[in-house]
């Protein structure tokens, strides 16, 4: 690619050397997008915090959540972040086989988490706790549902990378793309840590032992 002026930033390039700040455009875009996502989940979590006490005589957090089960699936999702780190390290080192292994492992751990969420939702539904039960249930399902959707999109991206790599279409230079998808994946995991704490643990603790008075 011939350009007239190598010091000028070029549109559509991800060559970090060509940008003003020396950061790749797509990485910066991912960080910017994550900034926006923070407000998205922030708004959903705020709604939940306002509503988790409004149960309409339906189940309350302490009565419905299965903390040990959700802890296990949380652990699996957290481990998937480790898988993501190892996948990125592999492609940076040029070990494509190891990269594919860890990408697939990450995707599978994500899928396990989603399966757990699906199971959890169906148990809740069977216990009469569904989308329309109460403001508590509405805000719970919409929040965790949107998080699940984010995990699903992440899995789709991971599988696409895996497939591209299998077909030899993911050369080692594209490790920055892997890094960006990794950023997204870690973000989704971190959001889950907040959700698990704020949505499951704290309300469950509060509703078991309500403050006296």
């Amino acid at each position: 690619m011939a350009t007239t002026d190598m010091s000028a930033p070029l549109p559509g390039t991800d060559d970090a050397h060509a940008t003003t700040l020396g950061l790749a455009n797509d990485k910066m875009a991912m960080w910017t997008f994550i900034g926006s996502e923070c407000l998205f989940f922030g708004a959903l979590i705020s709604t939940y915090l306002i509503y988790f006490g409004r149960t309409n005589e339906g189940p309350a957090p302490a009565g419905i959540f299965d903390i040990p089960f959700t802890s296990a699936s949380t652990f699996i999702l957290l481990m998937s972040s480790l898988g993501m780190v190892l996948a990125l390290a592999a492609i940076q080192a040029g070990d494509m086989r190891r990269f594919r292994t860890w990408t697939m492992a990450t995707a599978l751990m994500g899928a396990t988490f989603l399966a757990g969420q699906f199971y959890e939702f169906s148990v809740f539904a069977a216990e009469g706790f569904n989308l329309t039960t109460s403001p508590f249930s509405s805000s719970f399902f919409v929040l965790t549902g949107f998080h699940g959707l984010h995990v699903a999109l992440g899995i789709l991206m991971l599988l696409s990378m895996w497939a591209a790599s299998m077909m030899g279409r993911l050369p080692q230079q594209l490790h920055t793309t892997v890094e960006n998808i990794g950023l997204y994946w870690h973000f989704v995991d971190i959001v889950w840590i907040i959700i698990f704490t704020v949505v499951y643990l704290i309300p469950a603790a509060i509703t078991i032992a309500p403050p006296t008075g």
Binding site: L39, F40, A43, S138, V142
Partner: peptide, 29 residues
Amino acid sequence: MPVIGVALWQLLFDVRYGTSFFNPASGGD
């Protein structure tokens, strides 16, 4: 944009799928 995005989703779920984010009759505000 994400703030209104969340509110619009909640509205959509309320009018279309019967959630109760903003419906005072079922505890929403």
